[in-house]
Amino acid sequence: SDFTIRIGDRTLHLKNVSEEILKILEELLRRGIDFEELRKIVEELIK
């Protein structure tokens, strides 16, 4: 499924993301992860 994360004025667009990855990202966001850290993790996950 497609997913968009907005943190402040920044946006991260994800396409064809599995439910498992979404759950991980949601947990990281709940813990207050930094946007740049989140972006790096996402890039690793979707390689």
Rank of each mutant, 00 (worst) to 15 (best):
D2Y: 02
D9F: 03
S1E: 10
I5F: 04
T4A: 03
K23I: 13
S18Q: 05
L25G: 02
D34G: 15
F35K: 03
K23A: 14
L14V: 04
L25H: 00
T11L: 06
R31W: 06
G8K: 03
S1G: 11
S1A: 08
L28H: 13
D2C: 12
L29N: 03
V17H: 01
E19D: 12
G32T: 08
R10Y: 14
E20Q: 10
S18F: 02
R6C: 10
V42P: 00
E43I: 08
I7E: 01
K47W: 14
T11P: 00
L12S: 00
L45Y: 09
E36Q: 10
T4M: 07
L12A: 00
F3H: 04
L12E: 00
E44W: 14
H13Q: 07
R6Y: 03
I33C: 05
F3Y: 08
F3Q: 02
V17N: 01
I21P: 02
L25V: 15
I7M: 06
G8R: 02
D2E: 04
D34Y: 05
K47I: 12
L22V: 15
D34C: 02
E20R: 07
K23F: 13
V42K: 01
E44M: 11
L12Q: 00
K15H: 09
T11G: 01
L38N: 02
L28G: 02
L29C: 06
L38H: 02
V17Q: 02
I41C: 08
F35E: 04
E26Y: 15
G32V: 06
D34R: 08
V42I: 08
D9Q: 08
I46K: 08
K47C: 09
E37M: 11
T4H: 09
L38T: 04
I46V: 14
K23D: 12
L25K: 00
R10M: 13
S18I: 02
E27S: 13
I24N: 08
R31Y: 07
E26M: 15
I5N: 00
L25I: 15
L38R: 01
G8E: 03
R10T: 05
V17D: 02
L28P: 02
D2F: 01
D34M: 10
I41W: 07
I21M: 15
E43C: 07
K47M: 14
R39Y: 14
R6W: 02
H13R: 11
K15I: 04
I21Y: 07
L38F: 15
F35I: 04
E44L: 10
V42R: 00
R30P: 02
V42C: 03
L45R: 04
R10S: 07
L28Y: 14
I41V: 12
L45Q: 06
D9T: 13
R30V: 08
K47H: 12
N16K: 04
S18T: 09
E26Q: 15
E37A: 12
I33D: 06
E27H: 10
G32I: 05
K23E: 08
G8H: 02
D9I: 03
I41R: 10
K47A: 13
F35D: 03
E37S: 14
K15T: 08
E27T: 14
K23S: 12
R6G: 02
E27L: 15
F3C: 06
T4G: 01
I21S: 11
E37G: 09
I41L: 10
I33T: 11
L14I: 07
N16Y: 06
V42N: 01
G8V: 01
E20L: 08
E44Y: 14
E36L: 06
L45C: 03
L29W: 11
I41Q: 10
I5T: 00
L12P: 00
I33S: 08
R39V: 14
R31G: 06
D34I: 07
E27A: 14
S18M: 02
E27N: 13
L12W: 06
T4F: 06
K47E: 07
I33V: 08
E44P: 07
L25A: 08
R10C: 06
I5H: 01
N16D: 05
R39F: 14
L28A: 07
R31P: 03
L29D: 02
T11M: 06
G8D: 03
V17L: 05
F3W: 04
L29E: 02
I5A: 02
H13L: 12
E27Q: 12
K15C: 03
I24C: 07
L38W: 05
E26N: 12
R6M: 11
I24T: 12
I7K: 01
T4D: 05
T11D: 02
L12N: 00
K23M: 14
T11V: 15
D2V: 00
E37C: 08
F3E: 01
I24H: 11
I5Y: 01
E19N: 11
K40L: 15
R31D: 06
R6L: 08
E36P: 04
E43P: 06
I5C: 02
I7D: 02
R31H: 07
L25D: 00
E43S: 10
E37W: 05
E43A: 13
T11N: 03
E37T: 15
L38K: 01
L25M: 04
E20N: 09
I7L: 07
